[in-house]
């Protein structure tokens, strides 16, 4: 007799536990406001990443097309996986002295791990992380970027 009571009560307990679970999912299907997914890319306009987000390395230029990179290669050394290559050249200054400036700031996005070490190592705050996260391209070679714009030069007073 005891066994039968136990048997029946186990069935009721089981059904109760199942209903408890169904109550949770039932709650969510009846509350469509709880939906958490976003409609990307439709919400591109409103989608804003946090300021700290590390999207990719960019060399900041001001409106006169000047940057702050002196070509010291600190970031190149700090980079753990060789994503940054700095190709510098010597130009003749108006006063006749020769000065080392960057020719190309090459950035391999495909190798970057977004560790932020280059940004920390930069003595002149020339580079920063942008919040752009849409990196997908159809050709791998497009992931190798030259960060300094054509015709840009070193900002006055930065050394």
């Amino acid at each position: 007799m005891k066994a039968i009571i136990k048997y029946i009560s186990s069935i009721f307990k089981a059904l109760k536990s199942l209903f408890r679970g169904m109550a949770v999912t039932g709650h969510y299907i009846s509350h469509p406001k709880e939906i958490i997914t976003q409609q990307y890319p439709e919400n591109r306009e409103t989608l804003k990443m946090f300021d700290m987000f590390r999207g990719e390395v960019v060399l900041t230029h001001n409106e006169r097309n000047e940057h702050r990179c002196t070509g010291c290669s600190a970031c190149e050394v700090a980079c753990p996986n060789g994503s940054i290559e700095i190709i510098s050249k010597r130009i003749e200054m108006p006063d006749g002295k020769k000065k080392k400036v960057i020719d190309k700031f090459v950035y391999h996005l495909s190798m970057c791990t977004f560790c932020n070490l280059c940004i920390l190592s930069c003595p002149t705050d020339a580079i920063k992380m942008s919040q752009d996260f849409e990196h997908a391209v159809f050709d791998r070679s497009q992931l190798t970027k030259v960060l300094n714009k054509t015709g840009s030069k070193l900002m006055e007073g930065v050394r």
Binding site: T25, Y28, P32, I35, I36, T37
Partner: peptide, 13 residues
């Protein structure tokens, strides 16, 4: 659709 609404998703859109 129903599975999506159970799972806080929108499903095919």
């Amino acid at each position: 659709k129903i599975c999506a609404f159970f799972q806080l998703r929108l499903g095919p859109m």
